[in-house]
Computed example of a mutant assay.
Amino acid sequence: MTEGKIMFRKSIAFAATLILSGCVSTNNIPIDEAKLTSAQPKSITVTQREKPDFSAMTAGKAYLGIFGAAAMISEGNEIVEQNHVEDPASYISQTLRKVLAQKYQLSVAESQQLIDSDNAADIARTYHDADLILDIETINWSFVYYPTDWDNYRVIYSAKLRLVDARNETTLAEGFCASVPEEEASAPSYEELVENNASVLKTKLRSAADHCIQEFEHNVLAI
């Protein structure tokens, strides 16, 4: 392989990692436990969002530029649909809501309303039936080949957390989490990721979600 091709592979994969990890300018804003307790919330709910696009970045499509990006999303969404792959945001929000409800003795409210806004006021007005609203938004979920190995893949996931007080439409806590695995010898191939109803992909996404749960618990929610 020529040096030019090697550099191309590395530059494409590096750029993909930055984009696909969903890099956003979000600083963790930890919860103020004393302030929350004094506000005496009684209930908590979680937001519902449309399932975001999933990107399946293969080496062949990387050469196609913007057309390749569209193909990656099309293929990724097809994989998700055909194999019933769940957005990890739902699992993260349900898990953290349970922990917060137990810690602050909150009743749990359910809502099926969808939202596509990041604004605290919009979130509060949409889910006004609860005092607290936990919003977990998937920023990116995807898989991409490694810079030095186009035959094996890593699953990338990132999410944003917001805890909103519906009564005064303010954000009580905010955080960001990203899971971008390092290269490893046991990394799955494309075929291994999607076979058996994408069981390996689902396992990797659940592991990434568990990582984000721990990050949010320790760095944002003080749990």
Results as ranks from 00 to 15, higher is better:
residue 1 M to F: 14
residue 1 M to P: 13
residue 4 G to I: 14
residue 5 K to F: 13
residue 7 M to H: 12
residue 7 M to I: 13
residue 8 F to E: 13
residue 10 K to G: 00
residue 13 A to H: 02
residue 14 F to E: 13
residue 15 A to Q: 05
residue 17 T to Q: 10
residue 19 I to S: 14
residue 21 S to V: 06
residue 21 S to A: 12
residue 21 S to H: 04
residue 22 G to T: 02
residue 23 C to R: 14
residue 24 V to K: 14
residue 26 T to Q: 07
residue 26 T to P: 00
residue 27 N to D: 14
residue 28 N to V: 07
residue 28 N to T: 08
residue 28 N to P: 11
residue 29 I to P: 00
residue 34 A to F: 06
residue 35 K to S: 15
residue 37 T to C: 01
residue 39 A to G: 05
residue 40 Q to G: 02
residue 41 P to H: 05
residue 41 P to L: 03
residue 44 I to K: 00
residue 44 I to P: 02
residue 46 V to C: 12
residue 50 E to A: 15
residue 52 P to I: 08
residue 53 D to R: 07
residue 53 D to Q: 10
residue 61 K to P: 05
residue 61 K to A: 14
residue 66 I to C: 04
residue 68 G to A: 09
residue 68 G to V: 13
residue 68 G to T: 11
residue 69 A to H: 05
residue 70 A to F: 08
residue 73 I to N: 12
residue 75 E to V: 08
residue 76 G to D: 04
residue 78 E to R: 13
residue 79 I to D: 01
residue 80 V to T: 09
residue 80 V to G: 02
residue 80 V to I: 15
residue 83 N to L: 02
residue 85 V to N: 04
residue 89 A to L: 06
residue 95 T to W: 01
residue 99 V to E: 15
residue 104 Y to S: 09
residue 106 L to H: 00
residue 107 S to A: 11
residue 107 S to D: 12
residue 110 E to C: 00
residue 114 L to V: 06
residue 117 S to H: 12
residue 120 A to G: 04
residue 121 A to K: 13
residue 124 A to Y: 00
residue 128 H to M: 01
residue 128 H to A: 09
residue 129 D to A: 15
residue 130 A to D: 01
residue 130 A to K: 04
residue 131 D to M: 00
residue 136 I to N: 09
residue 139 I to F: 01
residue 139 I to S: 06
residue 144 V to R: 06
residue 145 Y to M: 11
residue 148 T to C: 02
residue 150 W to V: 15
residue 152 N to T: 15
residue 157 Y to M: 09
residue 158 S to K: 08
residue 163 L to K: 08
residue 163 L to E: 02
residue 165 D to I: 03
residue 170 T to I: 07
residue 171 T to K: 10
residue 172 L to K: 02
residue 175 G to T: 03
residue 178 A to C: 07
residue 179 S to Q: 07
residue 180 V to F: 00
residue 180 V to Y: 01
residue 182 E to Y: 06
residue 183 E to R: 09
residue 183 E to W: 07
residue 186 S to G: 03
residue 191 E to I: 11
residue 198 A to C: 03
residue 201 L to S: 04
residue 201 L to P: 02
residue 202 K to E: 04
residue 204 K to D: 12
residue 207 S to G: 11
residue 209 A to M: 08
residue 210 D to P: 07
residue 210 D to A: 10
residue 214 Q to F: 04
residue 215 E to M: 13
residue 219 N to T: 10
residue 220 V to L: 10
residue 222 A to G: 11
